[in-house]
Computed example of a mutant assay.
Amino acid sequence: MKILYLGIFDDHELGGDIVLRKGFLQNNCEVESLDYRKLFSINNIDVAISKILLIARGKDLVFVGKGELITPILLKKLKKIGISTALWYGDII
């Protein structure tokens, strides 16, 4: 399975996105990691969405850790090109 993982990867080694990425890799998934907070901090929303869509092409799944900046527009566009999405929000609410 080919996964684009949108998460937070500048965290400590026990950060949720880092641990989950390791799990995907240990289960023979091909994972490309993208820190969406960094992407959105240096690009406007339209550019960030375009970059994510470009990177997502050919992936089976876009896996999102937290995702407070991920818009419904992006999710609809991913669905339109046939890419499944999953959201993981591991914080205690």
Score class of each variant (00 low, 15 high):
residue 49 I to S: 04
residue 81 I to H: 03
residue 70 I to G: 11
residue 5 Y to P: 03
residue 6 L to P: 10
residue 8 I to C: 05
residue 67 G to K: 06
residue 74 L to F: 06
residue 77 K to Q: 14
residue 55 I to F: 02
residue 46 D to T: 09
residue 76 K to S: 13
residue 55 I to W: 00
residue 2 K to N: 14
residue 11 D to L: 08
residue 21 R to F: 08
residue 8 I to P: 00
residue 60 D to C: 02
residue 58 G to S: 05
residue 3 I to P: 01
residue 49 I to M: 02
residue 3 I to Y: 02
residue 26 Q to I: 06
residue 9 F to T: 07
residue 89 Y to A: 12
residue 28 N to H: 12
residue 37 R to D: 12
residue 36 Y to H: 13
residue 58 G to P: 07
residue 84 S to L: 15
residue 74 L to V: 07
residue 88 W to D: 11
residue 33 S to Q: 06
residue 72 P to S: 14
residue 18 I to V: 14
residue 74 L to Q: 06
residue 42 I to Q: 12
residue 63 F to H: 11
residue 83 I to N: 02
residue 87 L to Y: 15
residue 77 K to H: 04
residue 71 T to K: 06
residue 51 K to W: 00
residue 21 R to D: 15
residue 23 G to H: 10
residue 57 R to Q: 15
residue 44 N to K: 12
residue 59 K to C: 10
residue 81 I to R: 01
residue 67 G to D: 09
residue 43 N to G: 09
residue 29 C to K: 08
residue 69 L to R: 04
residue 76 K to H: 07
residue 93 I to N: 06
residue 31 V to T: 09
residue 12 H to F: 13
residue 60 D to Y: 01
residue 27 N to V: 03
residue 6 L to Q: 05
residue 42 I to G: 04
residue 81 I to Q: 12
residue 76 K to P: 00
residue 92 I to R: 13
residue 25 L to F: 03
residue 46 D to I: 06
residue 22 K to W: 12
residue 85 T to Y: 07
residue 86 A to V: 09
residue 78 L to A: 01
residue 60 D to A: 04
residue 41 S to R: 15
residue 61 L to Q: 01
residue 87 L to I: 14
residue 23 G to R: 05
residue 88 W to T: 08
residue 41 S to K: 14
residue 16 G to T: 15
residue 32 E to K: 10
residue 84 S to H: 11
residue 56 A to S: 11
residue 52 I to K: 02
residue 14 L to A: 10
residue 83 I to S: 05
residue 67 G to V: 03
residue 75 L to I: 15
residue 87 L to G: 02
residue 76 K to Q: 08
residue 21 R to S: 15
residue 48 A to V: 04
residue 17 D to G: 11
residue 17 D to C: 09
residue 4 L to T: 02
residue 79 K to S: 14
residue 33 S to G: 05
residue 70 I to W: 04
residue 81 I to T: 02
residue 5 Y to V: 01
residue 76 K to M: 08
residue 43 N to T: 13
residue 32 E to N: 10
residue 20 L to D: 05
residue 65 G to Y: 13
residue 61 L to W: 02
residue 75 L to N: 09
residue 33 S to W: 00
residue 68 E to M: 13
residue 47 V to H: 05
residue 29 C to I: 00
residue 86 A to C: 13
residue 69 L to Y: 05
residue 62 V to G: 01
residue 29 C to G: 01
residue 63 F to R: 01
residue 50 S to W: 00
residue 31 V to Y: 10
residue 12 H to N: 12
residue 49 I to L: 03
residue 18 I to T: 14
residue 14 L to G: 10
residue 75 L to P: 03
residue 76 K to N: 10
residue 23 G to T: 09
residue 76 K to I: 04
residue 53 L to W: 03
residue 61 L to D: 03
residue 13 E to A: 13
residue 61 L to V: 06
residue 33 S to E: 10
residue 39 L to C: 08
residue 24 F to L: 11
residue 48 A to M: 04
residue 72 P to M: 09
residue 84 S to F: 14
residue 76 K to E: 11
residue 30 E to T: 10
residue 37 R to P: 00
residue 31 V to I: 12
residue 52 I to N: 02
residue 88 W to P: 00
residue 71 T to I: 07
residue 39 L to G: 10
residue 18 I to F: 12
residue 9 F to Q: 05
residue 71 T to E: 07
residue 91 D to K: 11
residue 83 I to T: 01
residue 8 I to S: 09
residue 82 G to V: 01
